[in-house]
Computed example of a mutant assay.
Amino acid sequence: MSDIAIRPATAADIPVISELAGVIWRAHYPGLITHEQIDYMLAQRYNPIALAEEIETVGHRLDALWMDGVIVGYANYFRYSPTEMKLDKLYLHPDLHGQGHGSRLLEHVFDESRKAGCSALILCVNKGNEKAMKSYLRNGFSVRESICVDIGGGFVMDDFVLEKSLA
């Protein structure tokens, strides 16, 4: 049986999470977005400086999922409104999909959001990301709205906003 733990990421974890993001995104997103957009978003949101800012920002959490001493996944979330937490990132190494580890990480975010006094969790998911949509719907989320956000560089995020009541 594997030794599994979820704990807040530290500055020392940032290079590993940044590298893991590249592995995950390059395995998962081709076909959903272009390779150019993948590279743009990795450079914009997953560079070590951006990740370090997230762990240093009050109210933001970046928690790592460890398995046998290795970071294999992570979740980034923050208070979006007085009653809502927003899950900004939840990713797991592709070799571990379908084993319940993503749901375990999601349950951790539910628990931490409740502890923070939030009654709902929201997130955005690419409209074409059927695998993630199925997982989130299976975990009690519903579609709140459809959005398309310009993220610069000539790219957009064409997403559904999902929400789950934590009551």
Rank of each mutant, 00 (worst) to 15 (best):
M1N: 07
M1W: 01
M1D: 00
M1P: 06
S2I: 05
D3Y: 12
I4Y: 13
I4M: 14
I4C: 15
A5K: 08
R7G: 00
P8Y: 01
P8A: 00
A11F: 06
A12V: 03
A12I: 06
D13A: 13
D13K: 08
I14K: 05
I17N: 14
E19C: 04
L20F: 06
G22S: 07
I24F: 06
A27T: 07
G31N: 13
L32Q: 10
L32I: 15
T34I: 14
H35Q: 15
E36P: 07
Y40A: 05
Y40G: 01
Y40E: 03
Y40N: 11
Q44M: 12
R45N: 13
A50M: 13
E53L: 12
E53G: 07
E53Y: 12
E53P: 01
E53A: 14
E54P: 00
I55A: 10
E56A: 15
T57K: 13
H60A: 04
H60C: 03
R61E: 13
L62V: 03
D63W: 08
A64N: 07
A64M: 07
M67K: 15
D68G: 09
G69E: 14
V70L: 10
V70G: 06
R79V: 09
R79A: 14
E84R: 14
D88V: 07
K89C: 08
Y91S: 03
L92Y: 06
H93I: 09
L96R: 09
Q99H: 10
G100I: 05
H101G: 02
S103M: 06
L105K: 00
E107T: 11
F110Q: 00
E112N: 03
S113A: 15
S113K: 00
G117W: 02
S119H: 11
A120Y: 11
I122W: 00
L123K: 06
K127C: 10
E130L: 04
A132S: 11
M133N: 02
K134P: 00
K134A: 13
Y136D: 09
R138W: 11
G140Q: 02
G140M: 04
G140D: 09
G140S: 03
S142H: 09
V143M: 07
R144C: 14
R144N: 13
R144E: 15
E145T: 10
E145C: 14
S146K: 09
S146V: 03
I147T: 06
I147E: 01
I147Y: 00
I147D: 03
I151F: 10
G154Y: 05
V156A: 11
V156C: 14
D158I: 09
D159W: 08
L162K: 01
E163L: 12
K164H: 02
K164F: 01
A167G: 15
